[in-house]
Design a protein around this nucleic acid. Structure first.
Length: 516
RNA sequence: GUCAGUGUAGCUCAGCCGGUUAGAGCACAGCAUUCAUAACGCUGAGGUCGAGAGUUCAAGUCUCUCCACUGACACCA
């Protein structure tokens, strides 16, 4: 059954090039998007960049660039990396686009009509890095942001405020809806936060040029978060060239899932839905706040000097290695620790040995004994313990993936591969074949393992698409139009298809202490 | 300070409602050896289940207290 499925990464801030954390988020979204496509759904996979705000303005200044040129430069770095990581996004949103600006204005007029904006005064200590006011004791003369370690700036200015408090009851109800916020720890956090009472927040800034002007308020620029969140909507419009907030143009909305880092949970689970309710629009179906990555047990930070550049990791291990490790070994909802030794071990063991060698040894036997035709008559009715195991693991895989439990999905694949290896040792076809009367039995055994490899190849597709394609290619399977429904039934590998010469589908990674 | 989450073998994790001698994968050690990518397979070592107390015939699993880590909020600076 074909359904529309809209998934978003955060719109990444272009203060700097992408880091491992944003790569992790984007790879996870890519896996989900591919999974949904393989299930026959029509997917709109949105990513993009958030380009406004004071930090961008100042970063550009320091580089002696116009902000727009700075944004263009950094945007290209994001696109380059997503291309290298084989991210299959459908749309790339830019908040500096004319279309986005137009939509922000339309949205704002709806919020005005709901009488949810008022002029107020805001004073306090402000961190440009966070784009947030900080609560600070009045007597402190030079407060510092605890996150960015930079001096806060005193602000005392008139801002437009959004009546968030008006939506206390509706937000309270929404956040309790099953499945709206995942994982459970994030849901609890938001329930606690909302129970303390929602306070109105300012949606504009003065003394800021780099942003979208507030209509009817010459000196006010939209607060970066107000404008950025709307990137999800502007990016999902049917007609990208003629952005209109109409029911027809919003058929890809609401998003099925916003995948975000835990640090921006409040914006996505509280402020954003309230804004949408104010404009009379549907709220997203779910928000998944995943954890952060540390490295060898430590937080990554420039000042610590231990940032792991995704480009370097990519060059060191390759795209399939990177994707596999991040999805298979890091628990998606929780913080995870990137360990280089473990990265190498897991990738080599799972992809090169368990799966890669399985394919290699089985194709070698098949070609040696049966050339291009495995003597089997009816593959669909053939019985094998591997068939049963395969069916069990497919179910586990599907249920886990639906919960964004990539680790469990990957484990199901590895279990099937282990079972195929054990099956081969148990059956020992290299002994059986010595007696020619066993030819048909051996043919069935070889076919069962090759069929398992085919299924493994297909299940790997959302996680490591390039490896998946190499596996299926060696089995001479056309991958241009596969889907789960038509591809996971046992017995679909044509025994007269012929197989390609076995070559390693995955190169080993040699462990270096420091890939930098 | 309040709330929430986490703490099980070197690493990553499983362990539904209390019930065998606490498990899996990886890593490590040994064996075996080719159909096979120094691979597959077999065997082994490795655990105060954060600490203490309690309930119970019996607790990793329930209760209480405490410790550590993470996050949110509050407070302080």
């Amino acid at each position: 059954m074909n359904m529309k499925y809209t998934i978003t990464t955060p719109l990444y801030y272009v203060n700097d090039k992408p880091h491992l954390g944003s790569s992790y988020t984007t790879i996870a979204c890519d896996a989900i998007a591919r999974f949904e496509r393989l299930n026959g759904n029509t997917v709109l996979f949105l990513t993009g960049v958030d380009e406004h705000g004071q930090k961008i303005e100042r970063t550009a200044e320091s580089k002696n660039l116009e902000p727009q040129l700075h944004c263009d430069e950094i945007t290209e770095k994001y696109k380059y990396l997503w291309d290298k990581l084989n991210i299959s996004y459908d749309r790339f949103v830019r908040t500096t686009s004319i279309e986005h600006t137009s939509l922000v204005h339309q949205f704002y007029s709806k919020v005005l009509k709901s009488d949810d904006v008022y002029m107020g005064r805001q004073s306090g200590w402000y961190c440009v890095g966070c784009e947030e006011y900080k609560d600070v004791e009045d007597k402190d003369k030079s407060p510092i942001c605890s996150i960015h370690k930079k001096e806060l700036e005193w602000r005392d200015e008139e801002n437009l405020f959004f009546k968030l408090s008006k939506y206390q009851d509706q937000i309270e109800k929404l956040i309790h809806v099953d499945g709206f916020i995942s994982p459970k720890s994030r849901k609890n956090e938001i329930i606690n936060f909302v129970s303390k009472g929602l306070r109105d927040f300012s949606i504009s800034r003065v003394n800021l040029k780099w942003g979208i002007n507030v209509p009817g308020n010459k000196d006010h620029t939209f607060y970066v978060w107000f404008d950025a969140l709307l990137g999800y909507v502007s990016g999902s419009l049917n007609d990208q060239c003629s952005p209109e907030l109409t029911e027809k143009s919003l058929s890809n909305w609401p998003a099925n899932i916003h995948v975000i880092g835990k640090d921006i949970l409040r914006f996505h689970a509280v402020y954003w839905p309230a804004m949408l309710l104010s404009a009379g629009m549907k709220t997203p179906r779910s928000v998944f706040g995943h954890g952060f990555l540390t490295r060898e047990g430590q937080k990554m930070g420039k000042s610590l000097g231990n940032v792991l550049d995704p480009i370097e990791l990519l060059e060191y291990g390759g795209i399939d290695a990177m994707r596999w490790y991040l999805l298979r070994d890091i628990e998606f909802g929780e913080d995870g620790d990137f360990q280089m030794r473990r990265f190498v071990d897991i990738v080599n063991s799972d992809l090169c040995n368990t799966i890669g060698n399985l394919l290699n040894r089985t194709i070698t036997m098949s070609k040696k004994w049966f050339k291009e035709n495995i003597p089997i008559d009816n593959t669909l009715s053939s019985d094998s313990t591997l068939k049963v195991k395969s069916e069990t693991k497919i179910i586990e895989y599907m249920e886990s993936f639906k919960d964004s439990n990539f680790k469990s999905s990957a484990n199901a694949i590895i279990d099937l591969a282990n079972s195929a290896n054990l099956y081969l040792n148990d059956r020992a076809p290299w002994k059986l074949i010595k007696d020619i009367s066993n030819k048909n039995i051996v043919a069935l055994d070889i076919y069962s393992v090759l069929e398992s490899c085919r299924i493994i190849g297909i299940l790997l597709n959302p996680i490591v698409p390039n490896l998946s394609n190499r596996i299926l290619k060696q089995l001479n399977i056309d991958t241009s139009n596969i889907n789960f429904k038509d591809s996971l039934q046992w017995g679909l590998l044509d025994p007269n298809n012929g197989l390609q010469d076995p070559t390693p589908v995955m190169d080993k990674i040699e462990f270096n202490e420091d890939p930098r």
